[in-house]
Computed example of a mutant assay.
Amino acid sequence: MQPYPEDLRADATYRDDGEIKLEGISLTWQIGQNAPDQGETQPPDWNNGRPAYPHHYEVWLDGRPTQTVDVYWATWYPHWQAANRHWVCLGETPAGQYRVKIRARHADGPWGPFTNEVTVDTSTSQPYKQFIPQRAAESAEGGRERHGSLEFPVSRAIRAIRDEDDARICQEARRLNTSTTWQEVVPPGTVADPPWNEERGYLEYRKFFQGADVASAANPAFKGLDLAGGDGHGDWPISTLEAVDGRHTFTYNYRQNHMGPKWTHQWFITKEGWDPARRISWDVLEPTPFMVEHHGGGTHGDQELQYTTEALVNRRGRHAIVNIWGGGDAGHDFAGEFFVSVADVDFR
């Protein structure tokens, strides 16, 4: 019998990200024989890292579907701890209280039952900390290009740099950019100020942005990607998004696919009413990513992978999608790195 999550537990926790404090909710749950407080005792159904646990989850906050979560894990000791936990980002100014519940489904099967609903008081927030073991074998293989970008919806980097789109704003972006490496839109200064927080086990990314510079990763080499419709060069070309059976599917183009327990994809969307004439800063984005993937579910050799969410079925009109893909591994001396993609879309 395929297990579904139950016995949900939730605590308010926060992550320091430079001078920014991101509030959130730490979730743990029972899945199969893997308990929320399983610790270092291997669950009986672990099956050498290949248990019959679901990978696809949905987080509901205050009675509405808020986030899709794809949970993968390493097969070696003690990564059963990664199979039943997740941190939900609430941003810098959360509400005082949230009701949270989750559900899961196996492969293409139906959604299973909801867990119990837990009420979380954010005024009791404590520091987030999680030790994530890693070994060199989990880092990406070398010898390939670096690193990746959103293929669909099409990222600004792919449109302006790789595909040399002839839209006026793309031409101006190429003129302003000093880099032609579309697959490596990364922030500067990560050597002196590493993005991976090894002590507390998470990626720090917000500290690198100073304003309306999300699309360029705050990197002057890609400053053309920060252009907006209000800058006098027309609008960015858009990708049209239409839900199929209530789902939207996104495709990421990997030139080198990092995987491992310290790697995540986070997908953000602009708030309702966003004006495409404005450049993109974090204050125009929803604070909770609509989709998160842990570890990676493909292989190091994959050059394209698809990600599916049900969290955007009610979206309409113009938006921007922001993807932050990053983490830390032994191949980077635990300093970490992350890559930024921004795509302009129209929901139909």
Rank of each mutant, 00 (worst) to 15 (best):
Q306F: 04
T308Q: 15
G297I: 02
D302A: 07
G297K: 07
G296S: 10
V322Y: 05
S281D: 02
T308L: 05
H319G: 08
W282V: 00
T299S: 05
H300S: 05
H294C: 05
I321E: 08
R278T: 02
R279M: 06
L305E: 15
N314I: 07
H295Q: 13
H295E: 10
Q303V: 15
V284G: 01
A330G: 09
Q306Y: 06
G301C: 03
S281F: 01
G331P: 01
P287V: 08
L285P: 13
G331Q: 02
H332M: 06
N323Y: 07
V313F: 08
T309D: 14
G317I: 06
P289G: 06
G297Q: 11
V284L: 02
I324T: 05
G298A: 08
V292I: 15
E286L: 01
E293I: 12
G301R: 11
G328L: 02
D283N: 09
A311N: 09
E293N: 07
N314K: 13
R279P: 00
G301L: 10
N323R: 13
P289K: 03
G297W: 10
T299C: 02
H295Y: 14
R316K: 13
L312N: 11
G296Q: 09
R316H: 13
E310R: 13
G298P: 15
N323T: 07
H295L: 08
R315I: 10
E293W: 12
R318F: 12
I280C: 08
I324Q: 05
Q303T: 15
V292D: 01
F290Y: 12
E310S: 15
G327H: 00
R278G: 10
V284Y: 00
I324H: 07
E304D: 11
G301W: 07
P289A: 09
D283P: 02
I321F: 09
L312A: 12
I324W: 08
T308N: 13
E293D: 11
T299K: 04
P287C: 05
G298F: 02
V322W: 03
Q303P: 14
E310Y: 08
E310F: 04
G327F: 01
I324F: 13
R318A: 13
E286S: 04
V292C: 05
R315C: 11
A330Y: 00
P289D: 05
I324L: 12
V292R: 05
F290L: 10
H332L: 07
G327I: 00
L305R: 15
A320Q: 10
W325S: 04
S281C: 03
G326D: 04
G298Q: 05
E304A: 06
V313G: 12
E310N: 15
A320R: 10
L285C: 05
M291A: 10
G317Q: 07
G297H: 10
G297L: 03
G301P: 06
H332W: 02
Q303N: 14
G301V: 14
P289S: 08
I324C: 10
Y307M: 09
G326S: 09
L312C: 12
P289Y: 04
I321K: 06
W282M: 02
P287R: 03
G296H: 03
T308R: 14
L312E: 11
R316L: 12
R315T: 12
F290A: 09
L312F: 10
D283K: 06
A330L: 03
V313E: 13
V313H: 06
H332R: 03
L305M: 13
E293K: 12
